[in-house]
Design a protein around this nucleic acid. Structure first.
Lengths: 335, 335
DNA sequence: CATCGTTTCTACAACGTTGTAGTCAACGTT
DNA sequence: AACGTTGACTACAACGTTGTAGAAACGATG
């Protein structure tokens, strides 16, 4: 019950290539021939074999998106936008989960990509520039600043400035003991490093001290890590009056920990996050955050990939910047 | 820089087929020959072309998972488990977003699947049994009860009983005016219909009236829909003392609306959801819910697909049931 | 009417892989 | 010494598609 060009050709009484021409929209086919072929296609419910087409054309029409974890809302939302943006090019998106493990990321970057897909959009957590150095095969677009001087195109947002602005927002509201949650060892998260830098910049510009005790590390950026870090800050006695969490899930965890400690947000402690995930628009209180334009990020990434596929593969790597804005909600509303 | 069996063969001084045999672990290859070939493979960084292999063997090693939306946390969490379960079989998972639109679901069920993938795990929202009737090509496993008498294997949970139990939990806590949020037109959500049935069962068994005015429809099951439905219930004057939301995102929206109305949960109104998404473990208050065993669902689905691929494709369709449990948290804690 | 260009179609080869059939040497058995 | 068996390998064809080259039919032009 699975048919080939040959079956359609026999039924329509034409050559295999003519059917192929009809399928691919080649113009020089007589209308009545085209109609006969299309009828045969419909009758047999013919679908092209993509593997064969790929083998012949060198293109699959499939791109991959590799993210650390799908159930981190930021990546899920990003994935949705990438799928939508790719659809405009007629591409299917294969989504890969790396778990943020360097080994798995390396496998994705070199292995999977090799022949099944045309290109890769990659959001690495642990990968280094060296891991990418030897890969000159599949075109790749990196998201974020994890690999800063690699050979691949990139889409970034200005983490330092965004972090500075949201911290500044807290300062303008009168907060003086502003904690930060989400710092990481420097060889891990580049985002963490940049957001911490923006936070420190804002403090310095306002003449506030940078207090090590107010900076809480978080190895992962899940709700549980945010809650744990917040509890740590509360019991350590540093008494922050505001918290900048390096992403929204950390912030949601922090909200929870503050609630459990009997503290009100924003009256006792103000909270801001980063990413603008949907949860933050419905949490109690709603969450002030930096909102990267995920749709634009996805669009730019797909576009870079398209240019790379159709154009010069040896052209120097480009880095594009996507915009963001501050979403100010209840968690920082002035009392 | 992309090499083929032929390149490896020339470098190792053997035939193409011998390299193929090494790659595929064929036993009758002399150790020294094997070593030479493996050395050549490593030197050239050879990777098999999956399209060519598929064309020849009829298998890609890729399965697809089609879900309505990736940024609905339930599906994102499910996707993670499916990817993990599939990895055990050496499969890559291609994730497809249908948006819950029947047209797109039909395309996925018939089109994409045709030649690129070995099998499909499908969570349809709008598809009907007729849409599936003509598809005898790619093996498929359906998740949920949307298509009840289709030709494909299925993994379900007992929605009616689960809904009855969680409603019963509310009744046991002393609630008498229990609202339901998430009902849909009968030709749409099968889950909605079953959960509503379980809700009605529980009321009847407890001798409580089923009051139409307490049942709020929700066309989609997002946070915003839950909030809107809850606001509707509050302004309509029916004064519920508990709410059963047909999924967790609806419930999170309802929590938000209750908060905005100045009502306390669970003191004034108790709230329960369905799905056990991560958000519900950190929301304020934390959310009581029905927790389907997503890992098991994913595992069963992958296993069914594996059996179908390796075994009898004409065997009658099987339906497997996955367990669930009640997760009782703050949103229903007794006052 | 011969010539030319265009339209419409076909035959063939190739993409990279693996199954089948077969070659050839080495070995053990009669 | 002749025979069959096994191990180790190779040549070839085929999977379904599309690019290339070119043939056949047709109308327009000189």
């Amino acid at each position: 019950m699975r048919h080939r060009l040959k079956d359609v050709a026999e039924r329509a009484g034409v050559s295999v290539k003519t059917v192929s021409n009809v399928v691919n929209g080649y113009v020089h086919v007589r209308p009545d021939t085209r109609a006969r072929v299309e009828e045969a296609i419909a009758e047999l419910n013919y679908r092209p074999n993509l593997s064969a087409r790929h083998l012949r054309k060198g293109r699959t029409g499939v791109i991959a998106l590799a993210v650390p974890e799908l159930d981190i809302p930021y990546f899920a939302e990003l994935a949705r936008h990438v799928v939508t943006a790719a659809a405009a090019y007629g591409w299917t998106v294969l989504i890969d989960q790396t778990g943020g493990r360097r080994e798995q990321e390396r496998v994705v970057a070199s292995g999977i990509t090799d022949h099944l897909i045309d290109g890769l959009i990659f959001s690495p957590l642990a990968l280094t520039a060296e891991d990418l150095a030897g890969l000159d095969g599949t075109p790749m677009v990196l998201l974020g600043e994890r690999v800063e001087h690699g050979p691949a195109d990139r889409v970034v947002i200005d983490n330092v400035t965004a972090a500075r602005e949201i911290t500044d927002h807290l300062i303008k509201l009168g907060h003086r003991r502003i904690a930060a949650i989400g710092s990481q060892r420097t060889d891990e998260g580049a985002s963490a490093r940049l957001r911490l830098a923006g936070y420190a910049d804002a403090l310095r510009a306002a003449g506030l001290d940078y207090d090590e005790a107010l900076v809480a590390p978080a190895s992962a950026w899940h709700r549980a890590d945010g809650a744990a870090a917040m509890r740590g800050l509360l019991t350590s006695g540093v008494r922050p009056d505001a918290v900048f969490c390096f992403n929204d899930t950390l912030a949601l965890g922090a909200l929870r920990a503050l609630h459990e400690a009997g503290l009100r947000v924003p009256e006792d402690v103000a909270v801001v996050g980063f990413d603008d995930i949907e949860d933050g628009r419905f949490s109690i209180p709603t969450l002030s955050t930096v909102a990267p334009d995920k749709e634009r990020i996805a669009h730019l990434a797909v576009e870079l990939l398209a240019n790379r596929l159709d154009g010069d593969r040896a052209a120097p790597a480009k880095a594009l910047s996507a915009p963001y804005r501050l979403e100010l909600r209840e968690s920082t509303r002035t009392p």
